[in-house]
């Protein structure tokens, strides 16, 4: 039990720190509303062209398609974190030295920070967004109790995948002077290849195959398809296995990179 005492304390600190700055999450709700409004408006027009018969066939109604996007943004509001930005700022300011000197690895510190933020978001942010989305738009409930449980399980794995991706991107701050462009590229790649902006079933075959070779579908496509019941039974289990595989794989990669960076780190004195 004592092995978990330190991570638990780190998670609690991150939770409380986010709580102190909770005001800025309120404009976050506005941001997410804008995302949902803009992209669902575009998709309403796409749906109206009759493309529904082909690549959107798995969505029986526009409401189902709307639900896909609403749930996608909701899931993102829950999994999102700024680990990459935090790492960049720590490197730029030099405070990273004190962090690396701690008896807990940088990787565990950042992972705990991400989990603490996710807990905060689950408690204070996502419920507000959920309420606003239901009041203003209304969307479909999960397909079944089982699909809801699968959705929640895949979301927990998404938090890990998101945190590790951000951690790996943040580590580039040790090597480059500015990570602004890399963070931005990551954001757009995630938005596109996770299925957040476009359901993967709508993609041309080659691009869909490419997307499935990346960890990004774990962030949106898999949770959403579980929620809507587009995958169920044995397929649902294999979807969860893919999520778990990426979570474990990226975790191991992050541990390896963390060790390598910590070993080669040189901090200017003074």
């Amino acid at each position: 039990m004592s092995a978990l005492a330190v991570p638990f304390a780190l998670i609690r600190i991150s939770f409380v720190a986010n709580l102190a700055y909770r005001l800025r999450f309120y404009t976050g709700v506005v941001s997410y509303l804008i995302y949902v409004l803009v992209y669902t408006s575009i998709w309403r027009a796409v749906y109206a062209t009759g493309a529904a018969g082909g690549p959107l066939a798995e969505f029986p109604s526009f409401e189902a398609l709307f639900t896909y996007f609403a749930v996608g943004w909701l899931a993102r509001s829950f999994c999102f974190n700024n680990v990459d930005r935090t790492l960049t700022e720590l490197v730029e300011s030099g405070h990273i030295a004190a962090r690396v000197a701690r008896p807990v690895s940088l990787h565990v510190q950042m992972l705990c920070e991400a989990i603490g933020e996710a807990a905060f978001r689950a408690a204070f942010f996502s419920p507000i967004l959920l309420t606003v989305l239901i009041v203003f738009f209304g969307f479909q409930p999960p397909a079944s109790f089982g699909s809801f449980v699968g959705f929640l399980a895949s979301l927990v794995l998404s938090i890990i995948v998101m945190a590790e991706l951000n951690f790996l991107v943040g580590l580039t701050a040790f090597k480059t002077q500015s990570t602004w462009g890399i963070m931005r590229a990551k954001q757009y790649l995630i938005e596109l290849l996770s299925g957040l902006l476009i359901p993967l079933s709508y993609f041309p075959d080659a691009l869909r195959k490419l997307a499935y070779c990346t960890p990004f579908p774990v962030l949106t496509s898999i949770p959403n398809r579980l929620y809507l019941g587009l995958v169920s039974g044995a397929e649902a289990w294999s979807a969860l296995a893919i999520s778990a595989g990426w979570a474990v794989g990226l975790f191991v990669l992050a541990v390896v990179c963390d060790r390598a960076v910590a070993k080669s780190l040189q901090v200017q004195g003074g």
């Binding site: 480059t176 500015s178 602004w180 462009g181 931005r184 590229a185 790649l189 596109l192 902006l197």
Partner: peptide, 15 residues
């Protein structure tokens, strides 16, 4: 950084 910025722009256009 220039390369990363270009990659980001390309991904946003891909939509």
């Amino acid at each position: 950084e220039v390369f990363a910025t270009g990659l980001g722009s390309a991904a946003s256009l891909a939509f």
